[in-house]
Design a protein around this nucleic acid. Structure first.
Lengths: 317, 317
DNA sequence: ATCATTTGTGACGTGAATTCAACATGGCCC
DNA sequence: GGGCCATGTTGAATTCACGTCACAAATGAT
């Protein structure tokens, strides 16, 4: 049941074509219709409007007063529709404002360095980069892309894997000197932890015992809203934190932070994904371009941690 | 085969409604559609444009960058369409420029006097009144209405009868004094006639002989393009002319023109019609109004010619 | 965790629009 | 003036897009 029967845009288009070409038949040819179809369409339009637009004999067309006015308006309107749709269409070149949301460590270390090149490649794109570790609602925040670390909640969001990061539990030397170094996950109960103000998908820190994984977490002495803040606290000796290796690698090599319980989580990794609302309708060009760009250029090195003979940790690979 | 498949106007309308009301379901209610229909329509639009316009969860709608822009344009365009159609529609009151074509005598004597009242009744109508006795092509001249005297050629034009006028062959007294008064149509061969520069539907002057009608016409000494010119020539004694009684009635009564051959054409009449292009599509309101106005107010008196005892002619009735 | 509401999807039927064929009309050239 | 070509119009058959229906998925609230 075609409830929305009258397609006024088609009527206008045909009408304009008829006027431009000066005949039903020629218009029909151009529009890949039959003259009959054009005739009926114009008649429909006129009947619907309740007034004659074109006086026609077999040889000549003449516009009525109304036809004149309608023609001019129609041309304008069609042009504007064309423009509106072309503008909205994910036309050729990516353009518009791209809103990206990333957690702070990854954003600072891996996204930001890529931005200049991306913007250079796509001059018509402007970028809003929001760095926050808080989970945001993509739609509510009008973000096009979010970068998330860790397991994803099932949703209609589409994720593109950007890399993997080893996670390490660390403490500052002065902290460890004061509270001791935990030997087993169970020891964490007597330690101080740095936690998050926002809900994470996993609650505790995963540790492997045999082939089982168990979670443990030290009682939090502080909770912060982003990884960089956690790192700063850890550096200051406030407590233990579980952070991404790409984030604190330099601190470990410099000896400012010391990994603990390494034997329990040799394979503790979290995936890094670019997440976007997808699949129901086509993606704006700028979003696709950005995702592709990230996937191609982001290289999260995932070195192994090795302990040297002198007790110092180094990153290999 | 709906070759003109996409009715972009409907898409825009639904899209705008969805945005305005903030939900597919509410939009569907308002548009008397099912939510499913709305969903599909929006999806179609997005697919066609190749980019997502609305990010949607079950509870919230958010416009993408493209959606924003498209919405604003769409609102504007829909408004303009509305305006264009309303303007073109033979809405309520007649308006616009009305082009009327009339022959000169009838126009001067019967149309012009009515014009002020008509314009007063329809303030939004402006009038172009072209007085010419030449047959014009209604469409080519962009005339809405033409007033024609005499038999109509078959055409798709629609005619509304406004009245009838007795036709009289007349000559000025000084002409008759010089060339004599014709007693029979055959005598016309020895007279001088005033003819027309434009083709008329009847060639000669009709005269009744018994119940047969024959045509005769004096050799033209002059040909003019309108009835008023013919009258002037006749008044000046240039020759005989066949003119409408409503036109030269006063001249006859004043004795400036004298009817001849009256016994041969007692019923020589020509109908007066308002003619307009019609019936395929609705008539613009101003045209209908004008036709109706004419039909109602034009009263062509059709008096009988009587000859008094002193040889003078008078008009009766 | 369950429920209520909203959006998305597959299959189906409808009907409005287009086509096809035949007819009317007008213009043009000889 | 008359036949021919091109054009616009009409009536009946056909078809293809669009919306509905029923069901599934997902999301937010209680």
């Amino acid at each position: 049941m075609a409830r929305f029967d009258t397609n006024r845009s088609a009527e206008m288009e045909v009408f304009v074509r008829v006027v431009d070409l000066g005949g039903f038949t020629q218009a029909a040819r151009k529009l890949r219709l039959t003259p009959s179809g054009v005739s009926k369409l114009i008649s429909r339009l006129e009947t619907r409007l309740g007034s004659r637009l074109i006086n026609r004999t077999t040889r000549k067309l003449t516009l009525t007063e109304e036809g004149q006015a309608f023609y001019q308006r129609a041309v304008r309107i069609l042009g504007e529709m064309e423009e509106a749709e072309r503008e909205a269409a994910s036309g050729s070149a990516p353009r518009g404002r791209l809103t990206v949301n990333s957690n702070i460590p990854f954003g600072m270390l891996h996204v930001m360095p890529l931005i200049p090149r991306f913007l250079e490649q796509h001059p018509d794109v402007t970028l809003d980069l929001v760095l926050t570790d808080t989970l945001i609602d993509l739609m509510q925040e009008r973000a096009d892309v979010a970068i998330r670390v860790g397991p994803l909640r099932a949703s209609r969001l589409v994720a593109r894997k950007l890399g993997t990061s080893r996670m390490v539990v660390v403490g500052a030397p002065n902290y460890l000197a004061r509270f001791g170094t935990p030997k087993t996950p169970a020891d964490l109960a007597d330690h101080r932890g740095i936690g998050w103000t926002f809900p994470r998908t996993i609650r505790g820190w995963p540790f492997k015992r045999g082939d089982r994984t168990e979670e443990a977490v030290p009682p939090p002495v502080a909770r912060v809203s982003d990884g960089e803040a956690a790192r700063r606290l850890a550096l200051g000796g406030a407590g233990l934190a579980r952070l991404a290796l790409f984030h604190i690698g330099p601190d470990i090599e410099a000896g400012r932070l010391v990994p603990v319980l390494q034997s329990y989580n040799p394979g503790d990794r979290e995936d890094i994904h670019a997440v976007y609302v997808g699949h129901t309708a086509p993606l704006p060009a700028r979003v696709r371009a950005f995702i592709d760009f990230l996937a191609e250029h982001v290289r999260v090195s995932d070195p192994a941690l090795k302990r040297a003979g002198d007790g110092r940790w180094t990153l290999m690979g």
